[in-house]
């Protein structure tokens, strides 16, 4: 299984994208309430790739460091759910959500906490929609704030079979050019489980 695209075929990916989109829809609704602005969702693009390919897949010009929220989940399949923003966008997001007129050059710990909450809402929605669709029970850790080098985050540290189910979905807060990406990092075993689940659901 060295060829990532062989893991999930086109149909399976589309189906997964559709499912996650439903969850994201709920998440953006609550985000929209929080920021009291319209939040637009892009059409999700789903792919499976090895970890080191992620930065270039996410960004035309990958930023050096990245901000975001990580929430680990476990159950029949397990992994990390990540919500990622470029540093600039994380600041813009705080600005949009909190209406801070004088943002600091970097996020304060309070603001990091706010980002964590936003990430928590979105990632909870994704994780719960996965759990719902597959009628699975997934345990989830409390969300943690991330500020790391993009390359470190997707280093092949977790072993050869660590692939990423990349859900590249961006949301935009109206009149603000803020893009966030949701990604799931799962090992081959978990992805295979997900694949079987999709097959079962689709009646294949």
């Amino acid at each position: 299984m060295n060829e990532p695209n062989a893991i999930l075929n086109e149909i399976q990916l589309d189906a997964l994208g559709e499912l996650l989109n439903i969850g994201m829809g709920a998440a953006t609704a609550s985000l929209s309430t929080m920021v009291r602005r319209e939040v637009l969702l892009s059409i999700p693009v789903i792919s499976v790739l090895s970890q080191h390919q992620v930065p270039n897949q996410l960004y035309d010009k990958p930023p050096h460091t990245i901000s975001g929220v990580r929430q680990s989940f476990s159950g029949e399949f397990s992994g990390d759910a990540l919500l990622l923003f470029s540093d600039e966008d994380s600041i813009s997001l705080v600005k949009a959500v909190l209406g801070e007129t004088l943002p600091l050059a970097q996020l304060s710990e309070m603001e990091e906490e706010a980002i964590t909450e936003i990430g928590n809402i979105i990632l909870n929605a994704c994780i719960s929609s996965l759990a719902n669709v597959f009628q699975e029970h997934l345990n989830s850790d409390t969300p943690e704030y991330l500020h790391e080098e993009l390359n470190d985050l997707f280093a092949d540290g977790q072993g050869d079979d660590s692939f990423v189910l990349l859900l590249k979905m961006s949301f935009q807060i109206s009149e603000q050019d803020i893009t966030g990406h949701v990604t799931f990092i799962m090992d081959i075993e978990s992805i295979t489980t997900v694949k079987n689940k999709i097959n079962a659901m689709l009646g294949i």
Binding site: S30, E113, E117, N120, N124, S140, P143
Partner: peptide, 21 residues
């Protein structure tokens, strides 16, 4: 209350930040 229901019904942890709440 929403977060409590997420936790009890969906077993989802939540963070409520001071900034937003």
């Amino acid at each position: 209350l929403q977060a409590i229901s997420d936790a009890l019904e969906h077993q989802l942890p939540s963070t409520l930040s001071h900034k937003l709440n």
